[in-house]
Design a protein around this nucleic acid. Structure first.
Length: 424
RNA sequence: GCGGGCGUAGCUCAGUUGGUUAGAGCGCCAGAUUGUGGAUCUGGAGGUCGCCGGUUCAAUCCCGGUCGCUCGCCCCA
């Protein structure tokens, strides 16, 4: 007697969570609009070529692919491969579709596009705690601005959005892809293998220096390379970008630490004591498309990050042949909601949710009139038949969010009563 | 893609060293009592013990497979 379930890794959103999600989304959108960003939407499906290009990195392997339809789906043809059967895929992030959107609609868009996107993305990976195969992302991106102003504004706007939904005491970690490249180069790692060094480096806070050394050794890196790498990264906790740049010497362009330093100072000043911004040379970020500054926000007490982003200056050019600088910051909507659910957060109601209890035999017209009257007084009345066991009924209504009730008896206006605090 | 744990009532879980009719709490339904806030009492419905196969006189229990859920790894938000 197995009941139907949602597809693996997918989940239903129940009323309590849906209310939180609506509230979070409204807060985030309102914040971003005050920074001058405009909302855009792109389709859930994109042509498969866009998604399986090399810009998605590992994510490209996790695309949900969609079969061709009708005559184009010729299963009988010999020697069929997956590519022959598939022509569409579900987006795995919002950045690749945004770049496609920008190249498609460039003529009608402002020279500098500041876009908000909020919507579901899909990844065909194994579900796990806090990880689903469908999840919502909330991105802001700036296409058309070189590094500096864009990064500073994205960081501040995202931090303000998190503050607006009640987060505090978080830290924005900031690094730059070029600093990572310099670290790898100065350690004598050939360029083709930078990626795997970065991925291992990213785990430093989780597995420690010894863990990183061990993993690099397993991947076949030379003792000398590993030694140089760990010397460079020794005691970097809280190090200034200027001090760290000295360790790298000539392998790093001096403009990079200057830029990062300026962003840190500016955002730090704007933050005051509400949140922190810190340089972290071990911050990597998974996506292969990042070219410059990268950043991430973690919430104390949770081991996953709640926001991440960076600069991806090559992507537009790769797709359209015409370059445009781009930078974005993505809030992990699901994780923000998860944190609020943990706190059993209840969004403030706009109107008093009032159950209007209608005794048997009451004329429908009378019920509607009474409800209309309450609505005009700013309440949110909802009609239910009055049940025999009032206590039971009120308890149930209270559980689904009603804060007030009234019984429709007699001819006069119904008397609104507040629900009692739940008995313990 | 790789590894561990778990599938018994609507929910949370007991249980059987393999042996007639598989249990509790909560919830649900009906009635009584109360008579416009949760109480109490009585009665009731609801399970091919995830699915398929094997071992056995006998399987919810042991074995194999499968599906689902879950927690890690890889990777990621």
């Amino acid at each position: 007697m197995s009941k139907p379930q949602p597809a693996r890794g997918m989940r239903d959103i129940l009323p309590t969570e849906a209310a939180i999600r609506d509230w979070v989304q409204a807060k985030i959108l309102a914040t971003y609009r005050r920074f001058g960003y405009t909302r855009i939407e792109t389709p859930a499906l994109e042509n498969i070529q866009l998604l399986t290009g090399d810009d998605g990195g590992e994510n490209a392997k996790l695309v949900f692919k969609v079969l061709k339809r009708g005559e184009k789906l010729d299963l009988a043809k010999p020697g069929m491969s997956e590519d022959d059967l598939v022509d569409l895929g579900l987006r795995f992030d919002l950045t690749v579709p945004l770049v496609r959107f920008f190249t498609t609609n460039r003529a009608q868009l402002p020279r500098v596009l500041k876009a908000i996107q909020i919507g579901p993305v899909w990844r065909a990976e194994r579900p796990q705690k806090g990880r689903y195969r469908q999840f919502t992302q909330c991105d802001i991106d700036i296409i058309g601005l070189e590094e500096g102003l864009a990064e500073a504004e994205l960081l501040v706007a995202s931090a303000e959005a998190l503050i607006a939904v009640g987060f505090e005491g978080f830290t924005i970690r900031l690094n730059d892809r070029r600093i990572l490249t310099a670290i790898a180069a100065a350690s004598g790692v050939e360029e083709a293998r930078h990626g795997s060094v970065f991925i291992t480096l990213d785990k430093l806070d989780k597995i420690g220096v010894d863990g990183v050394r061990k993993e690099l050794a397993q991947q076949g890196f030379a003792e000398a390379q590993i030694d140089r790498l760990s010397t460079m990264l020794a005691g970097v906790d809280g190090i200034s970008v200027e001090a760290f740049a000295k360790r790298l010497g000539a392998s790093l362009d001096a403009k990079v630490p200057a830029l990062i330093g300026e962003v840190l100072d500016a955002v730090g000043a704007d933050a005051g004591n509400r949140y922190r911004v810190a340089f972290d040379p071990t911050l990597v970020r998974g996506m292969g498309y990042y070219t410059g500054p990268v950043f991430e926000i973690a919430q104390p007490g949770y081991d996953f990050s709640i926001a991440g982003g960076g600069r991806y200056d090559r992507m537009v050019g790769k797709l359209s042949g015409e370059e445009a600088p781009a930078c974005g910051f993505s809030i992990g909507f699901e994780r923000v909601v998860a944190v609020l659910m943990d706190k059993t957060f209840v969004p403030p109601a706009e109107a008093k949710l009032t159950a209007l209890l209608v005794p048997e035999g009451t004329a429908l017209a009378r019920a509607l009139t009474a409800a209309r009257m309450l609505r005009s007084e700013g309440l949110a009345p909802s009609l239910f038949p009055l049940e025999k066991k009032l206590g039971r009924q009120l308890e149930g209504l209270q559980a689904s969010g009603f804060t007030h009730y009234a019984t429709l008896d007699g001819d006069g206006p119904p008397a609104i009563r507040a629900m009692k605090a739940p008995a313990r």
